[in-house]
Amino acid sequence: MEKKTALWIYQKMNEIRFFEEQVRRIFGKGLIPGFVHLYAGEEAVATGVMAQLEDSDYITSTHRGHGHAIAKGCDINGMMAEIMGKKDGLGGGKGGSMHVADIDKGMLGANGIVGGGFGLAAGAALSIKTLGNDNVAVCFFGDGASNEGTFHEGLNLASILDLPVIFVCENNQFGEGTPFRYASASETVAERASAYNMPGVRVDGMDVEAVYKATEEAIERAKAGKGPTLIECDTYRQYGHFEGDEQKYKSEDDPNRDRDPIIEFRGKAVENGWITKEEADSIESAAEKTIEDAVAFAEVSPLPDESSLYKDVFA
Protein backbone atom coordinates (compact mmCIF):
# COMPACT_ATOMS: atom_id res chain seq x y z
CA MET A 1 0.00 0.00 0.00
CA GLU A 2 1.26 3.45 -0.85
CA LYS A 3 2.14 5.74 1.98
CA LYS A 4 -0.36 8.43 1.02
CA THR A 5 -3.17 5.86 0.84
CA ALA A 6 -2.26 4.49 4.26
CA LEU A 7 -2.14 8.00 5.72
CA TRP A 8 -5.53 8.81 4.24
CA ILE A 9 -7.05 5.58 5.50
CA TYR A 10 -5.67 6.05 8.98
CA GLN A 11 -6.93 9.62 9.10
CA LYS A 12 -10.45 8.66 7.97
CA MET A 13 -10.62 5.70 10.35
CA ASN A 14 -9.78 7.98 13.23
CA GLU A 15 -12.16 10.70 12.13
CA ILE A 16 -14.97 8.14 11.96
CA ARG A 17 -14.18 6.71 15.40
CA PHE A 18 -13.87 10.08 17.10
CA PHE A 19 -17.00 11.26 15.29
CA GLU A 20 -19.01 8.32 16.58
CA GLU A 21 -17.64 8.68 20.10
CA GLN A 22 -18.66 12.33 20.10
CA VAL A 23 -22.08 11.56 18.65
CA ARG A 24 -22.51 9.00 21.42
CA ARG A 25 -21.49 11.53 24.04
CA ILE A 26 -23.74 14.34 22.85
CA PHE A 27 -26.62 11.97 22.16
CA GLY A 28 -26.30 11.00 25.82
CA LYS A 29 -26.57 14.66 26.72
CA GLY A 30 -29.82 14.92 24.77
CA LEU A 31 -28.42 17.17 22.06
CA ILE A 32 -29.46 14.94 19.17
CA PRO A 33 -33.14 14.42 18.29
CA GLY A 34 -34.39 10.97 17.28
CA PHE A 35 -31.98 8.08 17.29
CA VAL A 36 -28.52 7.25 16.00
CA HIS A 37 -26.83 4.10 14.70
CA LEU A 38 -23.09 4.13 15.28
CA TYR A 39 -20.49 2.85 12.83
CA ALA A 40 -17.69 2.35 15.38
CA GLY A 41 -15.95 -0.98 14.80
CA GLU A 42 -16.67 -1.14 11.07
CA GLU A 43 -14.20 1.55 9.97
CA ALA A 44 -12.08 -0.81 7.90
CA VAL A 45 -14.93 -1.34 5.44
CA ALA A 46 -15.78 2.28 4.64
CA THR A 47 -12.16 3.37 4.43
CA GLY A 48 -10.91 0.30 2.56
CA VAL A 49 -13.58 0.76 -0.12
CA MET A 50 -13.46 4.54 -0.30
CA ALA A 51 -9.67 4.61 -0.62
CA GLN A 52 -10.31 3.19 -4.10
CA LEU A 53 -12.98 5.72 -5.09
CA GLU A 54 -13.00 9.21 -6.56
CA ASP A 55 -15.40 12.08 -5.82
CA SER A 56 -17.21 11.32 -9.08
CA ASP A 57 -17.97 7.73 -8.03
CA TYR A 58 -21.28 7.17 -6.27
CA ILE A 59 -22.19 5.38 -3.08
CA THR A 60 -25.46 4.48 -1.41
CA SER A 61 -25.39 4.00 2.31
CA THR A 62 -27.46 2.71 5.19
CA HIS A 63 -28.99 3.81 8.48
CA ARG A 64 -25.47 3.24 9.87
CA GLY A 65 -24.04 5.76 7.45
CA HIS A 66 -21.81 8.25 9.26
CA GLY A 67 -18.67 6.26 8.44
CA HIS A 68 -19.50 6.07 4.74
CA ALA A 69 -20.21 9.80 4.59
CA ILE A 70 -16.94 10.76 6.27
CA ALA A 71 -14.90 8.42 4.09
CA LYS A 72 -16.65 9.71 0.95
CA GLY A 73 -15.54 13.22 1.79
CA CYS A 74 -18.72 14.79 3.14
CA ASP A 75 -18.04 17.93 5.15
CA ILE A 76 -17.68 16.85 8.76
CA ASN A 77 -18.94 20.09 10.25
CA GLY A 78 -22.00 19.87 7.98
CA MET A 79 -22.55 16.27 9.05
CA MET A 80 -22.41 17.02 12.76
CA ALA A 81 -24.74 19.98 12.33
CA GLU A 82 -27.13 17.81 10.32
CA ILE A 83 -27.21 15.13 12.99
CA MET A 84 -28.00 17.79 15.58
CA GLY A 85 -30.80 19.19 13.40
CA LYS A 86 -29.13 22.51 12.72
CA LYS A 87 -29.38 25.02 9.89
CA ASP A 88 -25.80 24.50 8.71
CA GLY A 89 -26.29 20.77 8.34
CA LEU A 90 -25.71 19.14 4.96
CA GLY A 91 -29.46 18.84 4.53
CA GLY A 92 -30.32 22.06 6.33
CA GLY A 93 -31.31 20.00 9.36
CA LYS A 94 -34.14 18.28 7.49
CA GLY A 95 -32.58 14.86 7.03
CA GLY A 96 -30.73 14.01 10.21
CA SER A 97 -28.52 11.04 10.99
CA MET A 98 -30.33 8.56 8.75
CA HIS A 99 -30.30 10.85 5.71
CA VAL A 100 -26.84 12.39 5.66
CA ALA A 101 -26.03 13.01 2.02
CA ASP A 102 -24.04 15.14 -0.37
CA ILE A 103 -24.73 14.40 -4.01
CA ASP A 104 -21.85 16.66 -5.11
CA LYS A 105 -19.53 14.27 -3.31
CA GLY A 106 -21.23 11.25 -4.86
CA MET A 107 -22.84 10.37 -1.53
CA LEU A 108 -26.44 9.48 -2.41
CA GLY A 109 -27.54 9.30 1.16
CA ALA A 110 -27.65 7.31 4.30
CA ASN A 111 -30.98 5.52 4.14
CA GLY A 112 -33.60 4.86 6.77
CA ILE A 113 -35.03 1.95 4.80
CA VAL A 114 -33.16 -1.32 5.21
CA GLY A 115 -32.46 -2.61 1.71
CA GLY A 116 -33.34 0.70 0.07
CA GLY A 117 -30.00 1.12 -1.65
CA PHE A 118 -29.62 -1.85 -4.02
CA GLY A 119 -31.67 -0.38 -6.83
CA LEU A 120 -30.51 3.19 -6.22
CA ALA A 121 -26.90 2.12 -6.70
CA ALA A 122 -27.85 0.12 -9.78
CA GLY A 123 -29.55 3.28 -11.08
CA ALA A 124 -26.49 5.42 -10.43
CA ALA A 125 -24.47 2.80 -12.30
CA LEU A 126 -27.00 2.96 -15.12
CA SER A 127 -26.37 6.72 -15.34
CA ILE A 128 -22.62 6.08 -15.43
CA LYS A 129 -23.01 3.53 -18.20
CA THR A 130 -25.55 5.49 -20.25
CA LEU A 131 -23.63 8.77 -19.99
CA GLY A 132 -20.36 6.99 -20.81
CA ASN A 133 -18.53 7.97 -17.62
CA ASP A 134 -15.57 6.05 -16.21
CA ASN A 135 -16.93 5.57 -12.71
CA VAL A 136 -18.50 3.02 -10.41
CA ALA A 137 -21.34 2.99 -7.90
CA VAL A 138 -20.98 1.21 -4.58
CA CYS A 139 -23.93 -0.04 -2.55
CA PHE A 140 -23.21 -0.54 1.15
CA PHE A 141 -25.69 -2.74 2.94
CA GLY A 142 -25.88 -4.80 6.09
CA ASP A 143 -26.41 -8.50 6.63
CA GLY A 144 -29.97 -7.61 7.65
CA ALA A 145 -30.67 -6.03 4.25
CA SER A 146 -29.37 -9.12 2.49
CA ASN A 147 -32.62 -10.86 3.43
CA GLU A 148 -34.86 -8.20 1.89
CA GLY A 149 -36.38 -9.05 -1.48
CA THR A 150 -34.80 -5.88 -2.82
CA PHE A 151 -31.39 -7.61 -2.58
CA HIS A 152 -32.50 -10.12 -5.19
CA GLU A 153 -34.06 -7.57 -7.52
CA GLY A 154 -31.13 -5.18 -7.33
CA LEU A 155 -28.37 -7.74 -7.84
CA ASN A 156 -30.17 -9.54 -10.62
CA LEU A 157 -30.94 -6.34 -12.50
CA ALA A 158 -27.39 -5.02 -12.11
CA SER A 159 -25.98 -8.28 -13.34
CA ILE A 160 -28.13 -8.72 -16.44
CA LEU A 161 -27.39 -5.13 -17.49
CA ASP A 162 -23.65 -5.48 -16.67
CA LEU A 163 -23.78 -2.34 -14.57
CA PRO A 164 -20.60 -0.93 -12.97
CA VAL A 165 -21.74 -1.43 -9.40
CA ILE A 166 -20.17 -3.06 -6.36
CA PHE A 167 -22.35 -4.49 -3.62
CA VAL A 168 -20.53 -4.28 -0.30
CA CYS A 169 -22.12 -6.21 2.54
CA GLU A 170 -21.11 -5.18 6.02
CA ASN A 171 -21.87 -8.37 7.87
CA ASN A 172 -21.69 -7.24 11.47
CA GLN A 173 -23.40 -10.47 12.57
CA PHE A 174 -26.70 -8.90 13.63
CA GLY A 175 -29.70 -7.42 11.85
CA GLU A 176 -30.92 -5.26 14.72
CA GLY A 177 -30.88 -8.01 17.41
CA THR A 178 -31.31 -11.05 15.18
CA PRO A 179 -28.18 -13.05 14.44
CA PHE A 180 -27.26 -13.48 10.78
CA ARG A 181 -26.70 -17.21 11.33
CA TYR A 182 -30.38 -17.49 12.27
CA ALA A 183 -31.83 -15.12 9.68
CA SER A 184 -30.03 -16.38 6.61
CA ALA A 185 -30.53 -19.78 5.00
CA SER A 186 -27.13 -19.48 3.38
CA GLU A 187 -24.03 -19.54 5.51
CA THR A 188 -22.61 -16.46 3.85
CA VAL A 189 -23.96 -13.58 1.80
CA ALA A 190 -21.08 -13.90 -0.66
CA GLU A 191 -22.12 -17.36 -1.84
CA ARG A 192 -25.42 -15.98 -3.11
CA ALA A 193 -23.48 -14.12 -5.81
CA SER A 194 -23.33 -17.29 -7.88
CA ALA A 195 -27.10 -17.09 -8.32
CA TYR A 196 -26.56 -13.74 -10.04
CA ASN A 197 -23.59 -14.84 -12.10
CA MET A 198 -21.21 -12.42 -10.45
CA PRO A 199 -18.13 -12.95 -8.29
CA GLY A 200 -18.84 -13.17 -4.57
CA VAL A 201 -15.92 -12.72 -2.23
CA ARG A 202 -15.78 -12.84 1.52
CA VAL A 203 -13.07 -10.83 3.20
CA ASP A 204 -11.97 -10.03 6.73
CA GLY A 205 -13.85 -6.79 7.23
CA MET A 206 -11.64 -5.84 10.16
CA ASP A 207 -8.65 -5.75 7.81
CA VAL A 208 -8.52 -2.59 5.69
CA GLU A 209 -6.04 -4.03 3.29
CA ALA A 210 -8.25 -7.02 2.49
CA VAL A 211 -11.21 -4.73 1.80
CA TYR A 212 -9.02 -2.39 -0.22
CA LYS A 213 -7.72 -5.17 -2.45
CA ALA A 214 -11.11 -6.77 -3.03
CA THR A 215 -12.51 -3.39 -4.00
CA GLU A 216 -9.69 -2.79 -6.45
CA GLU A 217 -10.52 -6.00 -8.30
CA ALA A 218 -14.23 -5.24 -8.29
CA ILE A 219 -13.65 -1.77 -9.75
CA GLU A 220 -11.41 -3.16 -12.45
CA ARG A 221 -14.09 -5.64 -13.42
CA ALA A 222 -16.87 -3.01 -13.31
CA LYS A 223 -14.95 -0.54 -15.45
CA ALA A 224 -14.11 -3.24 -17.97
CA GLY A 225 -17.84 -3.65 -18.57
CA LYS A 226 -17.97 -7.03 -16.86
CA GLY A 227 -20.63 -6.04 -14.36
CA PRO A 228 -21.07 -6.15 -10.61
CA THR A 229 -19.23 -7.88 -7.77
CA LEU A 230 -20.51 -8.81 -4.34
CA ILE A 231 -18.05 -8.32 -1.48
CA GLU A 232 -18.99 -9.54 1.97
CA CYS A 233 -16.98 -7.94 4.76
CA ASP A 234 -17.02 -9.85 8.01
CA THR A 235 -17.12 -7.20 10.73
CA TYR A 236 -18.65 -6.26 14.07
CA ARG A 237 -20.30 -3.22 15.55
CA GLN A 238 -18.84 -2.03 18.80
CA TYR A 239 -22.12 -0.61 20.01
CA GLY A 240 -25.74 -1.57 19.62
CA HIS A 241 -28.10 -1.38 16.71
CA PHE A 242 -29.05 2.06 18.03
CA GLU A 243 -27.74 4.11 20.92
CA GLY A 244 -29.50 2.88 24.04
CA ASP A 245 -29.68 -0.70 22.80
CA GLU A 246 -28.80 -2.98 25.73
CA GLN A 247 -27.21 -5.47 23.31
CA LYS A 248 -28.18 -8.49 25.36
CA TYR A 249 -28.18 -10.55 22.17
CA LYS A 250 -24.38 -10.23 21.90
CA SER A 251 -22.20 -12.95 23.39
CA GLU A 252 -18.63 -13.57 24.48
CA ASP A 253 -17.88 -15.80 21.51
CA ASP A 254 -19.08 -13.44 18.77
CA PRO A 255 -16.40 -13.46 16.11
CA ASN A 256 -14.50 -10.16 15.85
CA ARG A 257 -15.79 -9.07 19.24
CA ASP A 258 -12.37 -8.34 20.69
CA ARG A 259 -10.84 -6.87 17.57
CA ASP A 260 -10.38 -3.21 16.73
CA PRO A 261 -9.69 -2.47 13.07
CA ILE A 262 -8.01 0.83 13.84
CA ILE A 263 -5.49 -0.67 16.25
CA GLU A 264 -4.89 -3.52 13.81
CA PHE A 265 -4.29 -1.15 10.92
CA ARG A 266 -1.97 1.04 12.93
CA GLY A 267 0.14 -1.98 13.86
CA LYS A 268 0.27 -3.24 10.32
CA ALA A 269 0.96 0.17 8.78
CA VAL A 270 3.80 0.91 11.15
CA GLU A 271 5.22 -2.59 10.77
CA ASN A 272 5.17 -2.34 6.98
CA GLY A 273 6.69 1.12 7.05
CA TRP A 274 3.63 2.78 5.47
CA ILE A 275 3.26 5.16 8.39
CA THR A 276 5.64 6.09 11.21
CA LYS A 277 4.52 6.00 14.83
CA GLU A 278 4.87 9.78 14.96
CA GLU A 279 2.65 10.19 11.91
CA ALA A 280 0.07 7.89 13.42
CA ASP A 281 0.09 9.82 16.69
CA SER A 282 -0.27 13.12 14.94
CA ILE A 283 -3.12 11.82 12.74
CA GLU A 284 -4.95 10.66 15.88
CA SER A 285 -4.69 14.01 17.62
CA ALA A 286 -5.58 15.94 14.46
CA ALA A 287 -8.66 13.75 13.95
CA GLU A 288 -9.74 14.22 17.54
CA LYS A 289 -9.44 17.99 17.09
CA THR A 290 -11.32 17.93 13.76
CA ILE A 291 -14.26 16.26 15.46
CA GLU A 292 -14.18 18.49 18.54
CA ASP A 293 -14.26 21.45 16.17
CA ALA A 294 -17.22 19.91 14.36
CA VAL A 295 -19.14 19.61 17.61
CA ALA A 296 -18.33 23.22 18.47
CA PHE A 297 -19.44 24.28 14.98
CA ALA A 298 -22.69 22.37 15.22
CA GLU A 299 -23.47 23.55 18.72
CA VAL A 300 -23.43 27.22 17.73
CA SER A 301 -25.19 26.65 14.41
CA PRO A 302 -28.74 28.05 14.61
CA LEU A 303 -31.87 25.96 14.30
CA PRO A 304 -33.35 25.92 10.79
CA ASP A 305 -35.68 28.81 9.92
CA GLU A 306 -39.27 27.70 10.28
CA SER A 307 -39.90 28.80 6.70
CA SER A 308 -37.56 26.04 5.52
CA LEU A 309 -40.26 23.53 6.53
CA TYR A 310 -41.96 24.29 3.22
CA LYS A 311 -38.89 24.47 1.00
CA ASP A 312 -37.42 21.87 -1.34
CA VAL A 313 -40.42 19.55 -1.55
CA PHE A 314 -40.21 20.13 -5.30
CA ALA A 315 -37.48 21.49 -7.57
Partner: peptide, 26 residues
Protein backbone atom coordinates in the same frame (compact mmCIF):
# COMPACT_ATOMS: atom_id res chain seq x y z
CA UNK B 1 -31.59 -0.98 -26.17
CA UNK B 2 -29.37 1.35 -24.16
CA UNK B 3 -32.23 3.83 -23.87
CA UNK B 4 -35.27 1.57 -24.07
CA UNK B 5 -34.45 -0.90 -21.36
CA UNK B 6 -36.39 -4.10 -20.81
CA UNK B 7 -36.16 -5.19 -17.20
CA UNK B 8 -37.00 -8.38 -15.39
CA UNK B 9 -40.46 -8.38 -13.80
CA UNK B 10 -39.03 -6.70 -10.73
CA UNK B 11 -40.95 -3.51 -10.08
CA UNK B 12 -39.03 -2.58 -6.97
CA UNK B 13 -35.68 -3.15 -8.64
CA UNK B 14 -36.25 -1.09 -11.73
CA UNK B 15 -38.18 1.71 -10.02
CA UNK B 16 -35.41 1.99 -7.52
CA UNK B 17 -32.88 2.06 -10.36
CA UNK B 18 -34.96 4.73 -12.10
CA UNK B 19 -34.82 6.89 -8.97
CA UNK B 20 -31.06 6.34 -8.65
CA UNK B 21 -30.59 7.18 -12.31
CA UNK B 22 -32.74 10.31 -12.01
CA UNK B 23 -30.67 11.50 -9.05
CA UNK B 24 -27.47 11.10 -11.04
CA UNK B 25 -28.13 12.68 -14.41
CA UNK B 26 -30.68 10.72 -16.45
Amino acid sequence: RERVIDTPIAEHGYFSAAVGAAATGL
